[in-house]
């Protein structure tokens, strides 16, 4: 009854996370919600890296990424931290100026 968890399961979960993140970015008008969506997208991608670097899962050497995958995941986490810091600072300053975090109102970059 139990099927062993394969690489495809990880990919599916990663894709669901990614899709949720994208939808969150597109649909949320709150800047913080958009930031959350960004985190979801990054972590969805991270999951793929982790899965691909697992030795138990790499029966197919064509998909072998090894420790490089884990390293990339660490990079992404660090990047996400940095990005969150900068993005929150922008959000705070934006709020200070406009007393709002609605990204639809922040359209001064319109061409």
């Amino acid at each position: 009854m139990f099927h062993p968890i394969t690489l495809a399961h990880y990919f599916v979960v990663g894709a669901v996370l990614f899709t949720c993140g994208v939808l969150c970015m597109v649909l949320k008008r709150n800047a913080l919600g958009v930031l959350m969506g960004v985190e979801l997208v990054l972590n969805g991608a991270n999951l793929n890296w982790i899965a691909l670097s697992n030795p138990a899962l790499r029966s197919d050497p064509a998909w072998a990424v090894g420790l490089d995958g884990q390293l990339m995941a660490l990079f992404v986490i660090v990047l996400a931290a940095g990005e969150a810091a900068v993005a929150l600072a922008i959000a705070l300053n934006y709020y200070r100026l406009y007393l709002s975090v609605d990204v639809d109102q922040a359209n001064q970059l319109k061409g």
Partner: peptide, 15 residues
């Protein structure tokens, strides 16, 4: 006209 300044639209286009 494509450059609307709407962040969410940009994301949508990117995706």
């Amino acid at each position: 006209r494509l450059q609307t300044g709407e962040l969410r639209q940009y994301v949508l286009w990117a995706v």
